[in-house]
Computed example of a mutant assay.
Amino acid sequence: MMSLLSNCTSGGCGAKIGPGELSKVLSGMPVFGDPRLLVGFDASDDAAVYQIDQDTAIVSTVDFFSPMVDDARSFGRIAAANALSDVYSMGGTPLFALNLVCYPERMELDALGEILLGGAEKIQEAGAVLCGGHSIYDKEPKYGLAVTGRLDPQRIWRNNTPAPGDQLILTKPLGIGIVMAALRGEMADEQAVQAAISSMQRLNKYAAEKMHSFPISACTDITGFGLLAHAREMAGEGTSLVLYSSELPYIPQAYKYAGDYLITAAAQRNRNHMQGFVDLGDTPFALQELMFDPQTSGGLFLSAPKSCAQELLSAIQEVEPLARIVGEVLLPQNSPILVR
């Protein structure tokens, strides 16, 4: 069977257009003033939220990319988990999904069937239903979902509303992009690859379910822009975020690969975009790279009151054992993001 990776120049969320380039393009878009549109693309949030009535809003998102692993079923699971994550990060519950497929004519259809089966497994696990989709021929295989969910319009988790005094929690380890780059270069340790694949396939559903019992100030999921660029979005104009470098969870081998300068083009784009917005202090280069590293189906990054953060972390660790309190929210400092 033809290799998925041999047909792709990039994969996963590392294939995303960089945040700087994307913001330039979106700056020319018209403003849509429908008062029922509670969250639109102007907020750089994870999904759109549209109010239906006083008690109900729908949350809608779309995400797809080319493979980052050779196993077709695993790729389908990862792509679906990644797309579903945007609904969880807004505080919503997925209702239904549509497949998005790009596939080369030269490739065997058996692999496409495996990709779709992997995606369907995750949709079922999410408690949602698959309703159809759209497919085209393309030079590279790509797969993902358009997902619609439901949420309470009074309890939206936005990505840019942390409160000074809050603590910050990250639910999954960093290093996915670096490990996948090592895999492409045939330098990856099997244990690291399995840790990365397991993390990418795991739904953020379970961490989000724990979070619903607590007051969440802000939430996003860490994807292609890396931890630091997502943290910059969360800080907004009204706060600064301090990240504790010693508390960051990461795949151990990814730190070694980064120290050996096994880095990605997407991480460099993220680093360039964050110039002037982050004070890295004396953070080692390898750890810097882990924070710039593009994550595929990464964890939830959330802000919650200090009074309940430890209890919330303990609850999340029941389903995500590597989750950690990784920082705190301050009134604006001389930089939006400070790493200490």
Rank of each mutant, 00 (worst) to 15 (best):
D53L: 09
G144R: 01
K139T: 15
L302M: 11
S199Q: 06
I337S: 00
Q124L: 08
E209F: 03
L26S: 12
E289H: 13
L5Q: 08
Y244V: 03
G224V: 11
R106V: 13
A81R: 01
D279P: 02
Q333D: 03
L262Q: 07
V193F: 15
L290C: 05
D55T: 13
G281E: 12
I123K: 00
S27R: 07
V193E: 14
P30Y: 03
Y250H: 15
N7Y: 12
A254K: 02
S6R: 08
F65Q: 04
P252L: 08
Q317V: 06
P321C: 07
A315M: 10
Y255T: 02
K24Q: 10
F32N: 13
L338W: 02
C13R: 01
S307A: 14
V329R: 04
A309C: 09
M2F: 13
L98Q: 09
K172R: 06
G144W: 02
V59Y: 03
T161C: 12
M274A: 04
E289F: 06
P332F: 03
R202S: 13
K256L: 11
D221L: 07
G259L: 09
Y137T: 14
F301K: 00
G144F: 04
D293E: 11
L280H: 00
E105Y: 10
Y257V: 06
L145S: 01
N270G: 09
R77E: 10
Q54M: 08
S66K: 11
G299M: 08
L109S: 14
Q295F: 04
G281H: 09
E247W: 01
I222N: 00
T264S: 12
T220S: 10
G40M: 04
D138K: 05
F41D: 15
K139R: 13
L98T: 09
N270S: 05
Q124T: 07
D260M: 13
L228Q: 05
L98F: 13
I325R: 06
K256I: 13
S199C: 11
I263Y: 00
A218M: 09
Q310M: 04
T223P: 00
L312M: 12
A265P: 02
G281V: 08
K16I: 08
N334E: 14
A265I: 12
L170D: 04
I123N: 01
M29C: 09
A231H: 00
G259F: 12
F65I: 10
P153A: 09
K172F: 05
Y103N: 11
T61Y: 03
R324H: 14
V193D: 15
V326F: 09
N270F: 06
V179A: 02
S307I: 13
F65A: 15
A120P: 00
E21P: 03
K139Y: 12
